[in-house]
Design a protein around this nucleic acid. Structure first.
Lengths: 223, 223
DNA sequence: CAGCTTATTTATCATATGATAATTTGCTGG
DNA sequence: CCAGCAAATTATCATATGATAAATAAGCTG
């Protein structure tokens, strides 16, 4: 029974044929792909994407030569433009204490990153060994964590060394990773955690600040 | 060309037919599945699993009624028996300071958990919304984090309250999550991080211990 | 409004995949 | 040593999936 393919009615777009510009259509496909991939991972089917975009599946191949190309486009869509250029200046504005600066920053940053779509897609990408995720970690390190280390040094009256060694980054990474993990628990696993993001950020920052202070005091005790 | 299926030679087990006991064969299949799923996620094919197990694909269905059942078995294999019963006593042995106890514990615990197979499969499971991952988080909370909070309270001379409120768990979760994130960066993303696990653990614990101390001092200032 | 460009659809392939039925063969007990 | 239970294989299905070629039609331009 049902030997003949009998095209699935859900394959067909519900609405009447619409003609869109190349860019507009491409955008709709990518958006649909982001949505599906965030749910199912990158194994989501091109037919499912097409259905969500309200088009037929072969049309997708007019815009992306292969599924892998579409995945690349999804990476770009999800990873790029998450960085607000204001933040660069914000993090090094020494008219405010480090705690205040980074508290304000992380409150904005987490608003961008504590998003199920972002959290899920970036997890899937990391598991696929997508190099874009490496690149993103590098951005975090250069744009957030190294400035944090430097600014904290200055605040503690230490030498204003531009270079930040790998080992000095472990503490900020611990803090940053803890915050990411909190986002996963709250928005992906949907565990009943505190919903006071500000308090969580404050605590994470305090941990780092106290650790650096105690380290400096220990170092001073030597001299 | 090649219209006839022409069974893939790689489908066939290389060695001659071996008869195994039900349990032994089942175990081999699960091990192969763990291996494959940790690489590809749970979309890895049953044929691929069979090949790795050195059997034909339909045989798999004699042991597991469906792929989902096999996945359940993989969950159990990976999640269970990761807890060493010695740890229970270890964490509440007050003849050692909290730092020392939890340092020793985390050094053993991370040896279990900083394993690419475990890290990847548990990530895939979390993204699949597998309830086993919720269960595991619950175990972490009850077996590690709540004891940590309680023991630290005692060490700081606070009331030995058995109950640990949700908010009191955020700081230990931040620390624990940071350690997990370190494992991901090091063993999954293969980023060049410090390979001194002990030092990382020590730093993470220090962060928590300092935070709790300062909180207690702040509370005492009120009284 | 005719005509053309090209966005979009229909039809179709080859292969991959989960699952089942029928057949073969390894092994153990009598 | 051989009978028979059950482990294992072969053959096969139905469907899903990435991808391509040919047919259709939307909408702009002269």
């Amino acid at each position: 029974m049902a030997n003949k393919p009998q095209p699935n009615p859900s394959d067909k777009p519900t609405a009447r044929r619409r003609r869109l510009s190349r860019d507009a259509r491409k955008e709709e496909i990518v958006l649909a792909a982001v949505e599906l991939f965030s749910e199912t991972g990158f194994d989501g089917s091109t037919r499912d994407i097409a259905q969500r975009a309200g088009i037929t599946q072969p049309l997708l191949y007019r815009y992306f030569p292969s599924k892998e190309d579409l995945i690349e486009a999804v990476y770009e869509k999800v990873y790029l433009d998450r960085w607000d250029p204001r933040w660069d200046a914000m993090l090094v504005d020494r008219s405010f204490p480090v705690k205040e600066r980074f508290q304000a920053f992380y409150e904005e940053y987490t608003q961008t990153v504590y998003d199920p779509v972002w959290l899920r897609i970036s997890s899937f990408a990391a598991l696929r060994n997508a190099q874009i995720h490496d690149w993103y970690n590098h951005v975090v390190q250069e744009m957030i964590l190294k400035p944090l280390v430097r600014e904290r040094r200055v605040e503690l009256g230490m030498a204003d060394e531009f270079l930040v060694a790998r080992d000095a980054l472990e503490a900020p990474w611990l803090m940053h990773g803890g915050l990411l993990d909190y986002g996963m628990r709250r928005f992906i696993l949907k565990i009943d955690v505190s919903d006071d993001t500000s308090a969580i950020i404050s605590q994470a920052l305090d941990m780092y600040l106290m650790l650096t202070q105690s380290k400096m005091e220990a170092a001073q005790a030597y001299t």
